[in-house]
Write a protein that binds this DNA or RNA. Structure first.
Length: 943
DNA sequence: GAAGAGCCGTT
DNA sequence: GACGTACGGCTCTTCT
C-alpha cells in the first residue's frame, strides 16, 4: 500500500499531507456512536476523538513531514451564487457535530498543526491551493478527503487518500487508480462528475447517465466541450436526456472546478508540525475525558512530524498500536492430561481477580472484579440450527488459551463438560445461541454464561448490527486488525499440523471476544443494563436455542400440493392478464407494467415511487381498477394482475418453506435473530416464520402445513390480546383506558362507546373498526392523513375521530407527547425493563427525518416493552415446562404469539403453564389477557 | 455477482 | 408535499 513513497521519486523534498477537515470530522461523527463518546456534562466528543485517531492513523502510515488541515467557513461561497440549490439536501451539520468543530481546531493548535479557513471559499478550494503550493515546491502531496471533487487535483505528484467503507481502508487515488475506476484521467474527472451529477450535494446530472456513459462520451469527444459540440450526434434516450440537461451540466462543470489560487497568506514552510503543546493538549483531553491510551497514541503520531522533518525513517512504531488486542498464548490440547494441566493453570486466573491496571480508568466498574477472572470461550464453525459443525474450540483465561481441535474433543468430552458446568457463570462468549449450536455439534452443552458480547453490543447500540465478530470488534474497538495480525505472528505455538494461519485467526477471534467483553461490560454496567442482559437476553437466548434446534414440523406433501395449486392459480391469472394486455408482459417487472398501464392503456397514474416513477403497488392497482370500471380491457388486466400478485406471492412463500425443510428430520429450523430489530423484538430468518400469511383464508391455509411432529399430538397457539395498548394504558395511567381493559368487555366496542358517547350496544361495526384503527395507530404515530387513507374516510372525519379520542383519553395523549419530549431531551427512549434506543434524528433539521424519529420515539418504548414482556414469558414458560417434566415444547414465537408442540396427554396442563407464564410476565395496571387454542395444525390452533 | 429498486408477507 | 412501527425476502434491472 505504501510503496508509492519508496520507489522512484527520490528527488522529492518530502511529503505534504493536506486534510479536508470537514470531511474527516463528518466521517468521524457518523462512524462513532455519540452516546459512547460524551463527557459527563453531555458534550459530545465522538468527532474529536475520531478525528484525532483517524488522523493519527494516516500520519503513522504515510509519515508526511508537512501537514495542513482545511476547513469550510460559515456563510455561502461563490458557488451558491451560481447554483442556489448547491448542497441543498445536504443536511445541515447536526448540532452535536458543530459544537465539536471548535474543539477540533483547538486540538490542532495544541498539536502544532496548521489549519486554514477563508471566508467565501470552501475547504476544497483551500485544499486545491495548498496542493498546488506543495507541488510547486517540489513536495509529494497527499490529499485526505472523502469528496470526489478532489480527484481533479490528482497527478504524478498529488495522490488523494479516499476513505472506503471502513476508514482504515484508504484508497490511494493515483492517476492510474482514477483511470481504472472511471476510465478517464483525473483532469477529466470534473467533466464526468458534471454529467453524472452528485446526489449528496443536490447537484442533478443527466438522468440515466452514470459514470459509464459519461466516460464513454468523454473518451469519444475528448471532453465536455467536445460532447457539447457534438450533442446532436448522440443518439438514443441518453442523447436526448443530455440535450435537455445541457445547461445544468455546464453549470455543474463551473461549480465543481476548484480554485487553486486562493490567497491564503501562508507558505509551505509554515506547514511543518510536531511542536506539540503538551500542556494544552493534556488540558483539552482531560476536559474531554479522553483516556491515557488515546493521549499517548495521538501524541506519538504527531510528535513524529518533528522527527520526520529532521531525521529520516526510524522503525520505532507499530509495536503497540494494537494494545487493545492481546493475542493469547496458545496451548494445544491433545488429550485429557493436557486439558487437566491447562485447567489447573487456569484456576488462578479464575479464582483471584487479576490486576488490570492498564485499562482505561474512566469506567472502573464493580464488574471489573468479575471481568478480571472470567473465561472466554470461542468455538469456530457453523451455527446453522439444522446442521451445525465445529472445527476448533478455544478457552482462554488470563491470556492463556487452550486450543482444542474438533478431532480431539470426543476424547476429552467428559472433563471438558465438567469444566463448562463448573464455570458457566464465569464464561464470556460472543453469541451464546450460536455458540451453543456449535457446541451441541460436539455433544457439549453450555449453561447460561456470565456475559455475551454480541448481546451486550446490541443493548449498548440496538441500531447497529454487526454481522460478524470481526465487524463487531472493529466497530466497538476501532481496531487495526492488520496490526493485530502482525502481533499475532511471533507468539504462537506452532506444534501440531494445524495451518498456522488458521490458528492465528482463531486466536485473533478469541482475543476479540476478550477485548469486546472488557469494553462492553463497562458500558453495560455504566448503563445499568446487567439485569436486562442476565435475566432477559441471556436466558431467552437459551430458550431460542432450544426452539431452533427442535424446529417446526411440517407436512411436506401438504406443502407441495399447495405450491402446485398456487402455481396453477398464478399461471391462470398470468394467462388472463396477457390476454387483456395483448402481449406477454412480465407481470413481475414494475417497469414493464408501467409501460403497459400508463403508456399502452393510457391510464392515469396515481402515486409516484420515491425514485419518481409511477407506482404499481396493490393499492394503486386497486384504485386504477375502480376508476377503469367501464374500460373492460384495463379492468380485466388489473384484476388479473392483482390476482397474479397474490397467488404468485403465496407460491413463493410455500416454495421457500419447502426449500427450508431439513431432510434429516422433516422439520424447518429457522434462526431467530436476537440482535437485529432495534426495538427489542426478535426476527426470524432462513426461513422467516414470522410472516406466514394470516390475513385472508387463502394465505392462512399455509399454516395448516405446520403440524405436530412424530410423538406429538397437537399444536397450541397462545397469544396476547392488545399487549401494546395495555402497555399504553399502564404507562400512561389513563383511568378510562385502564377501566376499559379491566371491564373485560369487547375492548374496541367499549372504547368506541366512550369516544362517541353512545351505549355499547349501539356501536356500529364501522365505528368499532374506526376506533380500533385509531387505537393501534396511536402507538405508531399515525397521522390523521394515514388514518383517513386506511379507513377510506375523509381527512376531516379522521381529524374529528382523533380529537374525540384524545378528549376521552387525555392521559394517553399526554403520555405519548411526553415520550417524544423525553427522547428529545435525553436522546433516547427506554422500555419498562431498561432497553434503550437512541434517536439522533430528533435533532435533524430535515422534517422527514425528524418526523420519522418522532414516530420511532413514540413506538419504541411501547413495542419494546411488549417485546420485553414476551421474552420474559418465554423464559418462564420454558422453565415451567422443564420443571413440570413434560415433553411439550415451545417451537415458534411470532411477536405476541407462542406456538407450542404438545405431547400426548399434556394439552391441558401445558396450556395452563404457558398461559400462566404469559399472564404474569409483567406487572401492569391492567391484566395481560392471553387467548389460547389447540388444534391438529397451526391453522386449527387459531382461536 | 452485487447493489438497488419495487413490491409484499407478518405484527 | 408526505403521510404507521418493526422486520425478511423475492424478482427485476442495472452496473461491475
Amino acid at each position: 500500500m505504501s510503496e508509492s513513497r519508496d520507489d522512484a521519486q527520490t528527488k522529492t523534498r518530502g511529503t505534504l499531507l493536506v486534510v479536508d477537515g470537514h470531511s474527516l470530522a463528518f466521517r468521524a461523527f457518523f462512524a462513532l456512536p455519540a452516546e459512547n463518546f460524551s463527557t459527563q456534562a453531555g458534550q459530545a466528543t465522538n468527532a474529536v476523538w475520531g478525528f484525532a485517531t483517524m488522523l493519527s492513523q494516516v500520519l503513522d502510515s504515510e509519515k508526511p513531514d508537512h501537514l495542513a488541515v482545511a476547513f469550510d467557513m460559515k456563510g455561502g461561497t461563490f458557488r451558491n451564487e451560481m447554483l442556489p440549490q448547491y448542497k441543498g439536501t445536504r443536511e445541515a451539520a447536526p448540532e452535536d457535530l458543530l459544537t465539536q468543530l471548535p474543539l477540533i481546531q483547538k486540538m490542532l493548535t495544541a498539536l502544532g498543526v496548521t489549519y486554514v479557513e477563508k471566508q467565501g471559499y470552501e475547504g476544497d478550494d483551500i485544499i486545491a491551493t495548498l496542493a498546488a503550493m506543495g507541488e510547486r515546491s517540489g513536495y509529494d502531496t497527499l490529499v485526505l478527503s472523502g469528496d470526489r471533487d478532489a480527484f481533479q487535483l490528482i497527478d504524478e505528484r498529488v495522490t488523494v487518500l479516499y476513505p472506503g467503507h471502513h476508514f482504515k481502508d484508504l484508497k490511494h487515488m493515483t492517476p492510474q487508480a482514477v483511470e481504472d475506476k472511471y476510465h478517464v484521467g483525473p483532469a477529466q474527472y470534473p467533466d464526468l462528475a458534471a454529467l453524472r451529477g452528485e446526489t449528496a450535494d443536490n447537484i442533478p446530472g443527466v438522468p440515466g447517465v452514470g459514470d459509464g456513459f459519461a466516460a464513454k462520451w468523454i473518451n469519444q469527444y475528448g471532453g465536455l466541450e467536445g460532447i457539447i459540440e457534438h450533442a446532436d450526434e448522440i443518439g438514443g434516450k441518453k442523447g436526448e436526456s443530455l440535450r435537455e440537461n445541457i445547461e445544468q451540466v455546464k453549470l455543474n462543470r463551473k461549480v465543481n472546478a476548484l480554485r487553486r489560487d486562493v490567497d491564503l497568506g501562508i507558505g509551505i514552510e509554515d506547514l511543518t508540525f510536531g511542536e506539540v503543546d503538551a500542556d494544552a493538549l493534556s488540558e483539552l483531553f482531560t476536559s474531554l475525558e479522553f483516556g491515557p491510551r488515546t493521549r499517548s497514541k495521538v501524541l506519538k503520531s504527531f510528535n513524529a512530524g518533528k522527527q520526520a522533518s529532521d531525521a529520516a525513517d526510524k522503525h520505532a512504531d507499530d509495536e503497540d498500536t494494537s494494545d487493545d488486542l492481546r493475542i493469547p498464548e496458545a496451548v494445544t490440547i491433545a488429550d485429557e492430561a493436557a486439558l487437566a494441566a491447562w485447567i489447573d493453570s487456569a484456576r488462578d486466573g479464575l479464582g483471584s481477580p487479576a490486576d488490570n491496571s492498564d485499562d482505561e480508568p474512566r469506567n472502573r466498574a464493580h464488574c471489573a472484579d468479575v471481568m478480571a477472572s472470567t473465561c472466554a470461550l470461542y468455538a469456530e464453525g457453523s451455527s446453522k440450527p439444522g446442521n451445525p459443525g465445529c472445527s476448533v474450540l478455544m478457552l482462554e483465561v488470563g491470556g492463556k488459551a487452550a486450543v482444542l481441535e474438533a478431532g480431539v474433543i470426543a476424547g476429552v468430552r467428559p472433563a471438558l463438560q465438567r469444566f463448562l458446568d463448573g464455570h458457566a457463570d464465569r464464561i464470556v462468549v460472543h453469541g451464546y445461541k450460536e455458540q451453543s449450536h456449535i457446541l451441541a455439534s460436539l455433544g457439549l452443552d453450555l449453561a447460561e454464561p456470565w456475559f455475551d458480547t454480541k448481546l451486550a453490543g446490541y443493548l449498548v447500540q440496538p441500531d447497529y448490527h454487526a454481522d460478524s465478530l470481526e465487524q463487531a470488534a472493529s466497530h466497538f474497538l476501532q481496531l487495526q486488525l492488520d496490526n493485530a495480525d502482525d502481533v499475532a505472528q511471533g507468539q504462537l505455538d506452532l506444534s501440531g499440523d494445524v495451518d498456522p494461519a488458521d490458528q492465528r485467526k482463531d486466536l485473533l477471534h478469541m482475543a476479540m471476544v476478550r477485548a469486546l467483553a472488557d469494553m462492553l461490560a463497562a458500558k453495560i454496567d455504566e448503563r445499568e443494563q446487567f439485569r436486562l442482559l442476565q435475566s432477559i437476553e441471556l436466558p431467552v437466548s437459551h430458550v431460542l436455542f432450544g426452539m431452533e434446534q427442535v424446529g417446526a414440523s411440517v407436512d411436506f406433501m401438504r406443502l407441495t400440493e399447495m405450491r402446485d395449486r398456487f402455481a396453477v392459480d398464478a399461471r391462470d391469472a398470468q394467462e388472463t392478464a396477457w390476454q387483456f394486455a395483448g402481449s406477454r408482459v412480465n407481470l413481475q417487472s414494475p417497469k414493464q407494467l408501467q409501460a403497459v398501464l400508463f403508456d399502452d392503456m393510457g391510464l392515469k397514474p396515481t402515486k409516484k415511487t420515491k425514485s419518481g416513477s409511477y407506482t404499481t403497488n396493490a393499492s394503486a392497482l386497486q384504485d386504477l381498477a375502480v376508476r377503469s370500471v367501464g374500460n373492460e380491457r384495463a379492468n380485466g388486466f388489473l384484476t388479473a394482475l392483482l390476482r397474479h400478485r397474490e397467488t404468485n406471492k403465496l407460491k413463493q412463500i410455500v416454495q421457500s418453506l419447502i426449500d427450508a425443510v431439513n431432510p434429516d428430520d422433516g422439520r424447518i429450523h429457522t434462526t431467530f435473530e436476537q440482535t437485529v430489530a432495534a426495538t427489542g423484538r426478535l426476527s426470524s430468518v432462513d426461513p422467516n416464520l414470522q410472516n406466514i400469511p394470516n390475513r385472508n383464508a387463502e394465505g392462512r391455509e399455509i399454516r395448516s402445513a405446520f403440524v405436530p411432529g412424530e410423538g406429538y399430538e397437537s399444536l397450541l397457539s397462545s397469544d396476547y390480546s392488545q399487549v401494546e395498548l395495555r402497555i399504553m394504558a399502564d404507562l400512561s395511567g389513563d383511568d378510562a383506558l385502564i377501566e376499559a381493559f379491566r371491564s373485560g368487555a369487547d375492548f374496541h366496542k367499549y372504547v368506541a362507546s366512550l369516544v362517541y358517547g353512545i351505549p355499547v350496544d349501539d356501536i356500529t361495526p364501522d365505528q368499532r373498526t374506526h376506533v380500533k384503527a385509531m387505537s393501534y395507530g396511536l402507538a405508531y404515530g399515525l397521522s390523521t392523513y394515514g388514518l383517513a387513507q386506511q379507513l377510506k374516510i375523509s381527512p376531516g372525519e379522521a381529524d374529528r375521530l382523533k380529537s374525540q379520542y384524545f378528549a376521552t383519553f387525555g392521559k394517553v395523549h399526554e403520555y405519548l407527547e411526553s415520550l417524544v419530549a423525553g427522547a428529545r431531551e435525553k436522546g433516547y427512549t427506554e422500555t419498562m425493563f431498561g432497553r434503550c434506543r437512541y434517536f439522533p434524528g430528533l435533532q435533524s433539521p430535515n422534517r422527514n427525518i425528524r418526523d420519522a424519529a418522532e414516530r420511532g420515539a413514540l413506538n419504541a418504548p411501547i413495542q419494546g416493552s411488549a417485546a420485553d414482556i414476551m421474552k420474559i414469558a418465554m423464559i418462564h414458560a420454558s422453565d415451567a415446562l422443564a420443571k413440570a417434566k413434560v415433553r411439550s415444547r415451545i417451537i415458534l414465537q411470532i411477536h405476541d404469539e407462542l406456538v407450542v408442540e404438545i405431547a400426548p396427554g399434556e394439552a391441558e396442563q401445558v396450556t395452563g403453564l404457558v398461559r400462566d407464564a404469559m399472564e404474569h410476565a409483567g406487572d401492569l395496571a391492567v391484566p395481560l389477557d392471553v387467548s389460547t387454542g389447540i388444534g391438529s395444525d397451526w391453522q386449527l390452533a387459531a382461536h
